[in-house]
Nucleic acid binder design. Structure first.
Length: 468
RNA sequence: GUCCCCAUCGUCUAGCCCGGUCCAGGACACCGGCCUUUCACGCCGGCGACAGGGGUUCAAAUCCCCUUGGGGACGCCA
C-alpha cells in the first residue's frame, strides 16, 4: 500500500466546531498511525463567507488540540490557475460544456420538479447545445446519464447511486471561479490525497466527485464516511446545544487530551477501553473500528473523562493551566512545591481546571470566609476546648509530617473523648471555610503551622463572638 | 417529494462480517451501599437495550425482506 495521505479541509466560515475537530482528529490519527502525511487546506472559495478571523480560529483550535499538519496550510483562493487548467481540460475533451441557464430559471425548474415529486436536478437544457464561452455562462460537467456509480466506503461498506440520480453539476461559476466539487477533487488529486475521511453528510457528494475523478482520468481515493455528531435532541449540533466551538471548552477548563479522548471515543471504539492518551491513540486508531451510526454529544462524559485526565496529568503539565485559572480568580502564584502539593490534594476532586482552582482558593486566602451553613453547623462552643488543645498538640509536633499531624488529632480525641468527626469538621471549617475539602491532615501539613494556628484562633474568636 | 445512510440500556458503545459460549458485556449519568475526618477518588450492588413484523435455520442481537423511526443530500455554499 502506498503511503497514506489524509487531509482536513475546513471552510473558514466560523470557529473549529466539535464535528470538524473530530474529522480533523480522525484524519490526523490515521495519518500518524500509518506513518502517512496529514495535509491542511483552507477551502475559502466562497469569498462572501470566508474570513481571516475564522482561519485564525481554526488554527487556534487545532493548536489547542495539538493537531499538527505535515503539509499546508494551502488556500484554495490562491490556486485558481490550477483549477482553470483542469476546467479547460475538461472543456477541451468535451467532458464539460457551457451553460447559459440563469439562476432564476434553474430555481423555477427545481421548484417545478419538486412539485411533481421528482428529484430537483438539472434538466440538461444546454448539454447538447455546444455553446461557446460567453458572459454569464457557467461550466457544467457532462456526466453519464446511465449506469451506476459505486464505491466501497471504509466504514459504511458498498454504496451505490444510479447515475440517473445525478445531474450535470456546475464546476465553474459564471465569474470563472471553481465550485466546491471541482476544487476539492482537483486539490485532492494534486496534493496526492488518497484517503478521504469526512462527515457522512458528504456521502451523497461522493458519486459526483467520483465522476470528476473519472472525467479527469485519475484513480478514485479511498473514502471513509464518519457518522455525524448530533445534539441531545438528535439534531445537528448547533449553538442551541451549548458550546460548539472547541476552544470554548478550553475556557471551560477542559484539557485538550480529554477532548481528544472524548472525540475519538465517540464513533470509534477499541474494545471496552475508555481512557486513551494521545500517544496511545496514534498507535491503535483504525478505520475498521469506526461505527456506522450517528452519536449524540454528551457533555457529562466529556467532564468525566476530563476528571480522569486531570488525575492522570503530571504536575508539570497541569501547573500552568492551574495557575491560569487561579489568576482568573484573582490569585497570583507561581509554580513550585507548594503548588504541586495543593494540586495533588485536589486532583481527585475536580472535573475541570476551573474547579481545581475554585477548590484551591482556601490554600491562598489571607482571610477565610466561612460558608454560613458550615459555620453554623460546626463552629460551636463545644469545639473550643478541642481546638485549643489541638493548637497545643500541633505546636509540639512537626506538622510537615502528616503522620505527626494525625497523631496530634488522635491525642486530642483521647483527651476530649470526642470522635474524629467532631474534631475534624470544626477544624475543616476553620481552615477552609467549607465542610467539604481534601483530607484535614494533608491540609494542615501543606498550610503549615503559622496559618493553621491563625485560622484556628480566628475560628475560636468567631465562636466566642457568636456565643456572646 | 426523490435518492442515500443509519437503527443494542437515557447517552457513548462491545458483540453482528465468521448465527449457538448473550435470558446481551463495559462506560457515563442516576439510585443504594462500602471505605472514611468531610467531599471526592476507589470498590460493591441496583436500574436499564437487541425499534416492530415477517422469513431462513435445530438455533438470530447476529443472515434476508418489509414497516416504522432518525439523519443526510438534492445550491453559480462548503
Amino acid at each position: 500500500m502506498d503511503k497514506i495521505i489524509t487531509r482536513f479541509p475546513p471552510s473558514p466560515t466560523g470557529a473549529l466546531h466539535i464535528g470538524g475537530a473530530r474529522t480533523a482528529l480522525f484524519n490526523w490519527l490515521y495519518a500518524r498511525r500509518t506513518g502517512g502525511t496529514f495535509v491542511l487546506r483552507l477551502e475559502d472559495t466562497d469569498k462572501a463567507r470566508s474570513t481571516q478571523e475564522s482561519v485564525d480560529a481554526i488554527f487556534q483550535g487545532l493548536e489547542w488540540l495539538g493537531i499538527d499538519w505535515d503539509e499546508g496550510p494551502f488556500y484554495q483562493s490562491k490556486r485558481t490557475e490550477i483549477y482553470q487548467e483542469h476546467i479547460q481540460k475538461l472543456l477541451d475533451e468535451g467532458a464539460a460544456y457551457y451553460c447559459t441557464c440563469t439562476p432564476e430559471e434553474l430555481d423555477e425548474k427545481r421548484k417545478a420538479a419538486m412539485a411533481r415529486g421528482d428529484k430537483p436536478k438539472y434538466d440538461g437544457t444546454c448539454r447538447e447545445k455546444g455553446l461557446e464561452k460567453c458572459e454569464g455562462a457557467v461550466v457544467r460537467l457532462k456526466a453519464p446519464q446511465t449506469g451506476k456509480t459505486v464505491f466501497e466506503d471504509k466504514v459504511k461498506g458498498t454504496i451505490a447511486f444510479d447515475n440517473q440520480e445525478l445531474d450535470d453539476l456546475i464546476i465553474a461559476r459564471s465569474d470563472g471561479s471553481p465550485t466546491y466539487h471541482l476544487a476539492v477533487v482537483v486539490d485532492d488529486i494534486t496534493m496526492g490525497v488518497n484517503t478521504i475521511i469526512r462527515g457522512d453528510d458528504h456521502v451523497s457528494n461522493t458519486p459526483r466527485q467520483i465522476l470528476l475523478y473519472n472525467a479527469l482520468g485519475y484513480p478514485v481515493p479511498t473514502f471513509a464516511h464518519v457518522p455525524m455528531v448530533l445534539g441531545a435532541d438528535k439534531k445537528r449540533l448547533s449553538k442551541r446545544h451549548g458550546a460548539t466551538s472547541v476552544v470554548e471548552y478550553k475556557d471551560m477548563g477542559i484539557l485538550p487530551e480529554a477532548m481528544i479522548n472524548y472525540l475519538a471515543r465517540m464513533g470509534w471504539s477499541h474494545g471496552d477501553q475508555e481512557f486513551f492518551t494521545v500517544d496511545e491513540l496514534k498507535q491503535v486508531f483504525t478505520l475498521e473500528n469506526i461505527g456506522k451510526s450517528a452519536g449524540v454529544f454528551d457533555p457529562a462524559r466529556l467532564l468525566d473523562l476530563n476528571g480522569d485526565h486531570i488525575r492522570a496529568a503530571k504536575d508539570k503539565r497541569l501547573a500552568p493551566l492551574f495557575i491560569e485559572q487561579l489568576a482568573k480568580l484573582g490569585v497570583e502564584t507561581e509554580e513550585g512545591e507548594y503548588l504541586y502539593q495543593v494540586m495533588e490534594t485536589l486532583k481527585p476532586r475536580a472535573k475541570t481546571t476551573i474547579e481545581l482552582a475554585e477548590k484551591a482558593l482556601f490554600y491562598y486566602a489571607d482571610d477565610i470566609e466561612y460558608d454560613p451553613k458550615a459555620a453554623n453547623k460546626c463552629l460551636k462552643a463545644e469545639a473550643v476546648p478541642a481546638l485549643e488543645l489541638l493548637i497545643e498538640k500541633l505546636e509540639a509536633a512537626d506538622v510537615s509530617d502528616e503522620k505527626q499531624v494525625e497523631e496530634a488529632f488522635v491525642q486530642v480525641m483521647e483527651a476530649t473523648g470526642l470522635k474524629m468527626g467532631k474534631i475534624a469538621q470544626p477544624v475543616r471549617v476553620a481552615l477552609t471555610g467549607q465542610t467539604a475539602s481534601p483530607g484535614i491532615f494533608e491540609i494542615v501539613q501543606i498550610l503549615g503551622m503559622d496559618k493553621v494556628k491563625a485560622r484556628l484562633a480566628k475560628a475560636m474568636d468567631y465562636i466566642r463572638q457568636q456565643e456572646a
